[in-house]
Design a protein around this nucleic acid. Structure first.
Lengths: 354, 354
DNA sequence: AACGCCGCGGCAAAGGTTTTCCGGAACGTT
DNA sequence: AACGTTCCGGAAAACCTTTGCCGCGGCGTT
């Protein structure tokens, strides 16, 4: 009997079929009020037969909350957006919250348009994501009627809550790992210095080396593009100018891949001669590199989950703001040397030993 | 005066401020009915001052349409989901339609849950996406109250509308291109035969070679995994068993990359000795390959756009069904030989000359 | 026998907007 | 002066659901 061909079935038709009033139907279906068991069953049967599905629209209007949030990607969907979105959607979906997707494609006007659209749909909150961690203008000039969380991007307003990976700690992780592997002549091949992430990763690397009393001359820091070609070029330069380097920490897995290719083709063995650590832990890239690439994982999906949880807390009334950094973790593969020993540097605890 | 701190402003407050009734406010703001210009202006001013934004919820309830659609990714978000989603979101956003994002992660139960959730939110339609083009069970056992489009995946029910890239024609494109480049001893390194796309691309390749009277022995068709490692392995096998091959058409750019690496390291020149064509036109992969990879582009973003347009047509009442294939196009880079000549095989017209 | 209480279920308001219908005022016409 | 038009804006229904309040009937008690 389950027709359900048209979900235009309303509570009135269920009430008619069950021979009760609409209020009673609502109570029966939601387990409110005092109803005879027989009545409840009759209503349930009617609802089932008619394929009744209460309109979330009407509910939202009544309760003043929609259980929806907006996901506003300022930049277009990129590689990081996938795990980020997955994490957000996962955490929210479990709470029966639906997600509105908005891709502003880096267009400020479009972004404003989407914000208004989300507000008119009465979302309970908004998550803004990006593909760069550098500060950006907030989406609102004035105070918005709903809470906002910035995930994998940073609002330039300190009143907003921004969630970022801890690039500094990620750099430290790589440094500790390479030191633990006995390397002392490190180099760093990374992306454009205009990226905050580039600067922070380098600083993390430096902090550990400084503490350990290991030198890192400026000539062994090479900043370029986020490309394999740059990785190859930088590796070539290193080989000719700093041939004694025994470890290279790369600012991304893509760069690391270029470095690995260049080293191999130059007859340098990885990890025996030079140990290699990447950044991002981009599975498809790290696995295809020869040898498979040790890398720093920013745990973007976890960051997405956290962003969702923070937003929920703010919707519940908590007032959150400032920048929250999420720890990175080290994923060891062959490029930094095979070892059966547990590597202490994988500890998240910043006080972990070198 | 623009406060807007709380978008809880209703039409009633605007009416109060403007000294008119709510009906008049609605008419003034929407340009309906007969109103004095002075009245319209007064209402507009009041709405502006209060930061009034009409509730889409209330509108939806009234008009029986929400101007929202559900985007249901059966498989988790993958590489193809990005352009697909972009295309869909782009086409729908232009029509002021918002998108609900649902990632079922390949879980049938979760998928059903999402379908019910979308229906209870009264979406106007649903787009189902996947990352494989092979037929899959439809999301609905019975007829749904809203139209559904399958994009980059195929419903096993012929009553549904499915949009797919034309893998057959893509294979033809590659074949024509390589023939036009003067190659006659082709090989095909591709993914698992259980993928429909793998079979169709090979058939397209074959159809063109048959027509041209060019042989393609089974020993030059190598099916394996969608990995670079497989590409390298297959290329090695080809070199030892079919050293006279002068062109390789690969089932994906990833595979092609492995093939290219293996060839280069074996001292085979690309494209001089062996021309190479990939599939997917995955920019980051194609550009990083040495030499940059000629590839077949499935135009996934366009497919997403088309899916959105088809869904809109169905929402308007059109009855669409069956499988619609979208043409691929060839993107020429260095791996298939540099040429200043316009390549005839780039024509979409299937009747184009070889 | 009368009163009180409890179990059950109906009534109506509320939530925010659009739209139809209707009424009143002002103006023009005969 | 009376009637018809036109112009403007108000009242209320409709969309769908939840929930607080109220009423009615039956049962138990004194």
């Amino acid at each position: 009997m389950a027709d359900g061909s048209m979900s235009r079935v309303t509570i009135f038709e269920v009430a008619d079929l069950a021979g009760v009033s609409v209020g009673t139907v609502s109570k029966a279906l939601n387990g409110r009020g005092q109803l005879r068991a027989e009545t409840v069953e009759r209503v349930r049967a009617a609802a089932r037969d008619l394929g009744f599905e209460p309109s979330e629209l009407a509910k939202s209007l009544l309760r003043g909350r929609t259980f929806t949030v907006g996901l506003l990607t300022s930049d277009s969907f990129g590689r990081f957006s996938i795990p980020l979105t997955s994490g957000i959607e996962d955490a929210l979906g479990a709470g029966q919250i639906s997600v509105f997707l908005c891709d502003a494609r880096g267009d400020r006007v479009r972004e404003q348009h989407y914000v208004r659209s989300l507000l008119s749909r009465r979302v309970d909150g908004i998550i803004v994501t990006g593909r760069r961690t550098d500060p950006r203008a907030p989406i609102n000039d004035e105070r918005l009627p709903v809470p906002v969380v910035y995930a994998y991007c940073q609002s330039s307003s300190p009143d907003d809550l921004s969630l970022l990976p801890d690039d500094y700690q990620g750099g430290q992780l790589a440094a500790r790992h390479l030191l633990a592997r006995g390397r002392r002549r490190l180099a760093h091949v990374t992306g454009p210095v205009r990226f905050a992430a580039v600067r922070e990763r380098e600083q993390g690397l430096r902090s550990v080396l400084d503490t350990a009393g290991v030198e890192l001359p400026a000539s062994r820091i090479l900043a370029g593009e986020w490309t394999e070609a740059w990785g190859r070029e930088a590796a070539g330069a290193l080989l000719s100018q700093n041939p004694d380097v025994d470890a290279i920490f790369c600012g991304s897995d893509i760069i690391a891949r270029g470095v690995a290719d260049e080293l191999r083709e130059a007859g340098i063995r990885v990890p025996e001669d030079v140990a290699l650590v990447g950044f991002d832990n981009w599975e498809i890239m790290a696995a295809a590199t020869r040898p498979p690439l040790t890398s720093i994982d920013m745990n973007i999906e976890g960051l997405g989950k956290t962003a969702a949880h923070r937003l929920l807390a703010m919707i519940r009334g908590d007032a959150l703001s400032g920048v929250e950094r999420m720890p990175c973790r080290l994923v060891v593969r062959d490029s930094s040397g095979v070892s059966t020993l547990r590597d202490l540097s994988t500890e998240h605890d910043p006080s972990a030993s070198l």
